[in-house]
């Protein structure tokens, strides 16, 4: 089942001489439960792509369908609610709310939606993330790896249709990076959670089911991850 479909997506900045094509006729689709890595050098348009997939930046042309909904046909307020319910975002710099504790940060998307927090799901998620004994801590009392784990929890709490991660390990040392990737992969497996990770780290990309590589706003390669990494 296709959970994400991108049709002829283009995004340009500026006009005339100064016009820059950040994305140039990009099309691909992602099945439910897939783990896709998007790689490319900086300036290749991968972050622009992620922002458009996440419904935070409008494309110049083309459509994005998430779970069958053309997200850019929704108006601003509907898109905001759609985003809250169907998209989980993980950023390089965690973007946690500094005055809220771990548990409040994780349940924020539910609180915003006026939903009651299902205790069992929260407990399960914090247990998987190894945060059970840190629920009352504030973000500044946590290490980088722990903060990123909180933001993973926040992305997962709503059972979103897709989770988008923008350089999730970009700010972490190698041990923590490995741990974060393992947790993301575990959530991908355990909850059949569709996962799209943007990275410039090839070792991370190789762990995905599929790698999409972007250069100068165009898809250069879109294939099932190679199994030849041991060589």
């Amino acid at each position: 089942m296709k959970i994400l479909q991108v049709d002829h997506l283009s995004k340009s900045y500026g006009t005339g001489e100064a016009k820059v094509m950040a994305l140039d006729d990009v099309s691909f689709s992602v099945d439910k439960g897939e783990f896709v890595a998007i790689i490319g050098p900086s300036g290749s348009g991968k972050s622009t792509l992620l922002h458009i997939l996440g419904g935070v930046d409008k494309p110049t042309s083309g459509n994005v369908y998430i779970d069958g909904v053309d997200i850019y046909s929704l108006n601003e307020s509907k898109l905001a609610i759609f985003r809250r319910r169907q998209i989980g975002l993980i950023y390089q710099f965690y973007n946690l709310i500094p005055v809220l504790n771990v548990s409040e940060n994780i349940t924020l998307p539910l609180e915003l939606d006026g939903q009651m927090t299902p205790k069992t799901r929260l407990n399960e998620i914090v247990k998987t993330l190894g945060l059970s004994d840190r629920l009352k801590h504030l973000p500044n009392e946590l290490s980088g790896g722990q903060q990123q784990r909180v933001s993973i929890g926040r992305a997962l709490i709503n059972n979103p249709a897709i989770v988008l991660a923008d350089e999730p390990t970009g700010n972490l040392d190698s041990t923590n990076s490995k741990e974060i990737m393992e947790l993301l992969k575990a959530s991908n497996k355990k909850y059949n959670q569709t996962l799209i990770v943007i990275t410039h780290d090839e070792n991370i990309a190789l762990q995905a089911d599929r790698i999409i590589s972007i250069h100068d706003g165009k898809i250069q390669m879109n294939e099932v991850a190679s199994c030849e990494r041991l060589i």
């Binding site: 069958g68 909904v69 307020s77 509907k78 898109l79 609610i81 759609f82 319910r85 006026g114 939903q115």
Partner: peptide
Amino acid sequence: LDIRENVEGDISNLKN
């Protein structure tokens, strides 16, 4: 059918 409506409120949450 898809009954999601992407508006605020309890009934919308229920539909979702």
